[in-house]
Design a protein around this nucleic acid. Sequence first.
DNA 1: GCCTGATCGTTGGATATCCTACGATCGATC
DNA 2: GATCGATCGTAGGATATCCAACGATCAGGC
Lengths: 145, 145
Amino acid sequence: MSASGGLEGQVGFLLRLAQEASFAAFARRTGEAALRPGRYAILSLVGAHPGISQTALGQAAGRDKSTLTPALADLEKRGLLRRDRVAGDRRSYALRLTPAGRAMLTRLAAHAAAHDRDLDALVGEEARDAVLAALRRIAGGWGES
Amino acid sequence: MSASGGLEGQVGFLLRLAQEASFAAFARRTGEAALRPGRYAILSLVGAHPGISQTALGQAAGRDKSTLTPALADLEKRGLLRRDRVAGDRRSYALRLTPAGRAMLTRLAAHAAAHDRDLDALVGEEARDAVLAALRRIAGGWGES
DNA sequence: GCCTGATCGTTGGATATCCTACGATCGATC
DNA sequence: GATCGATCGTAGGATATCCAACGATCAGGC
């Protein structure tokens, strides 16, 4: 970009392209036609925090809580997750994976590990830590170390 | 993520968070309430390639051509860009910035340079090149070097 | 107990994305 | 010149995103 010529134009643009390419490669790898954006993150987070609320899940996922409404409905409909009302607080749901959800998460996690190795090959194991650290800083206060 | 535990879960997730944070910071910096996703990229690319077609622009921007239709209509409506039919090919438009569009691009480019320096401060000048190279590789065949 | 402010999750609306298909147009072939 | 395949850009549809506002519910203070 002759007019801009800076890192921002490039890093912002590259971040977007890299994010889309990474997700597309991951989706291809899983062969999961129904793998939609955020599903793996949701399954991972709920798996790691059984009983988590939708508000807390949204915060952990970096997504608006209203974005989760249809995504959770989809996962529930597919039998991968269930929502139970919280005792003593009829406003809230406790989210938990079903056995099918755990099985799906296990499969996706295996694909994620393989995807991880592909990314290592792309980026180089040495640069990996630097890239992760840089992304965390760019993301801002996320997992600061 | 206890279940996943891999780079993919993290790098994919981090790429998304980093991309959103970078754009949000850039938008705040420009103070341009009307700065919407892709506008800067479009202005930059059209500025650098006067006469470019919508199809070529979509390819350069990494966006579907149908995504550009409303974005270009918006920029045209705001008087920042104009679309002229191509002589000898009534299917195509030649895209060009207007003087107002060039002025807008100049302002945004200045903000982009400042944003660039902020990113340098976040990432560290030394890591910068490594990060850019890594993002290019992850993005796949984009500006391979 | 009643009142008030806060919270949870949903809904509606606006915007952005891609995919498919379409009409208009072009280029090559006969 | 007519035909056919390809291209350009648009439209429709589906999905994902966030923001604001809402109804139901909860907690704290009086």
